[in-house]
């Protein structure tokens, strides 16, 4: 019992672990809430592309001495709107458009990296996340962005659901589906860059997609799936954080692995019910 208590409590005698826990819980709630829409609307590739495409923005922010999020959030929003506009206005498919921007901007970000060698910007942290390095400012920014995303999502839920389920019917009923799509992409952009701290560019998709996909397997309504996916998301990030501390491994990959394990269990439960 004492060993278990020490295993659970000991990590949080360190301030950096408390900050990491706060960021993990916040991101673990926000990403899967949005992820339920992402999975049902088939926007997984879009989310992955957004995460990769913010690299130039992050490098630019660090270059002028700002917090990386100051570069990541605006550039993610611009990229999301640009993606939406290109998909709506060109004859190219969504996947093609996303692929072009994703590869081009990620390559630009990597090419710009040597410019910021004099500043501490670790490529591995950027790609795989480093929640243990979260500062007080990171916690506050994550809390504010999570609150904004959750509030907007709550306010627009029924409209977003209508547009996701029956876009044409929603337009005929008088909803501005295009405007709602753009707004959703902006929320997705904000959530994606907020999660970079925890799981990094490569693994952010695991928090957006995997908990939501697992929840959708074992629930009957969208709202139940949202709540359960948030539970799965928090479980993945918190268990991943403990594992990272005790096993001395990078936090982002462990969080992604735990999320994948949760999905495997949900799949088994869903299969057993059939």
């Amino acid at each position: 019992m004492e060993i278990l208590q020490s295993w659970l409590v000991a990590p949080f005698t360190y301030a950096f672990m408390v900050r990491a826990l706060a960021v993990s819980v916040l991101v673990g709630v926000m990403c899967p809430l949005l992820g339920t829409y992402v999975v049902t609307r088939d926007l997984g590739f879009m989310s992955d592309a957004l995460a990769h495409s913010v690299m130039p923005g992050v490098v630019a922010a660090v270059l002028v001495g700002l917090h990386p999020l100051w570069g990541a959030v605006p550039s993610a929003i611009v990229i999301a709107l640009l993606l939406g506009w290109l998909v709506h206005s060109t004859g190219l498919s969504a996947d093609t458009t996303i692929g072009i921007l994703f590869a081009g901007l990620f390559a630009l970000g990597v090419a710009l990296l040597p410019l910021v060698r004099h500043v501490s910007l670790n490529l591995e942290d950027l790609l795989l996340g480093q929640v243990l390095g979260a500062s007080q400012v990171d916690v506050m920014v994550t809390a504010i962005l999570t609150a904004v995303v959750t509030a907007v999502l709550y306010g627009l839920h029924s409209r977003l659901l209508f547009v996701s389920f029956d876009p044409l019917g929603a337009k005929v009923a008088g909803l501005s589906a295009t405007r709602l799509d753009y707004l959703f992409l902006m929320l997705l952009a904000v959530a994606t860059v907020t999660a970079l701290q925890a799981v990094g560019i490569i693994l952010v998709i695991s928090l957006l997609i995997t908990p939501a996909a697992a929840a959708l397997l074992v629930t009957r309504t969208f709202e139940h799936a949202m709540f359960l996916s948030a539970g799965f998301g928090v479980s993945a990030t918190v268990v991943g954080l403990y594992a990272s501390y005790h096993l001395n491994v990078a936090s982002g990959p462990v969080m992604a692995l735990v999320a994948t394990a949760i999905f495997a269990v949900a799949y088994a439960v869903a299969a057993a019910r059939r």
Partner: peptide, 18 residues
């Protein structure tokens, strides 16, 4: 989009969203 799991009453309520 049948991937969005909605109940019957949720779909009918969409008629009042505007």
């Amino acid at each position: 989009n049948w991937r969005v799991p909605l109940s019957v009453i949720q779909v009918v309520m969409q008629g009042r969203i505007r």
